[in-house]
Amino acid sequence: MVIGTSCQKELSSDSAATAYISIRFHPKINGTPFRLNETYTNSFGESYSATIFKFYFGQIALSGNPQHSQAVNGDPYYLVDLADPSSLEINTTIKPGTYNAISVLLGVDSARNVSGVQSGALDPAKGMFWTWNTGYIYTKLEGTSPSSTQVNGKFEYHIGGFRWPYSAIRNFTVTLTDTDTWQLQEGKTLELDISVDMDAFFNYSYPVRISEEPVCMTPGELAYQISGNFAGAFQLTQFDIN
């Protein structure tokens, strides 16, 4: 027993009081679940079918009043892959407290883009990394569309970039209205359901027509614009504390 504790110094008193946070993403289109290899139509009347949809998020933090914020323990990143349903739900821990806002980084922070080879979800072996122009692909949407001018009707949107002025790193932030708060006590779980409206990917702040811009493979203005669309796709639809 004594030996056991001496070996676990990292688990300090900080971990004594723990609450939980559970986030479930729901990619949707016109209110129904968005799935790979099914045919949909974007708001420009272009039909398309996605074969790959992945995105990074991380730096989950809750904030409250008086002004203080708490990042989830370990500050990890997650890779959501529509082909792997288990990746749509993440569970982690956070300090108990009274909160009224959540923020999530969509992408990967600029320091982690350039500070050597990362591991875990950020391992470049995951294929979400540009090797010739250092940096992560934050969001990947690939598929086919009769509207695409590319070979076999392919479209490929690889969204990333951390350099000014085209940083595609975005935040998704929700603040509760008025006096609403999340009273997150020890042992309790804050459950959040977040919808991801795939229509917005093509048409939120910037119209992306597959016929005109079927490919985005580098950081730059187009990736920046699409990242704005993508951030607009996120909406908190339901929350609960259990």
Binding site: N113, V114, S115, G116, V117, P124, T131, W132, N133, T134, G135
Partner: peptide, 8 residues
């Protein structure tokens, strides 16, 4: 200069 770290 596209690669920002020797390890990469």
């Amino acid at each position: 200069g596209g690669i920002a770290n020797l390890d990469l």
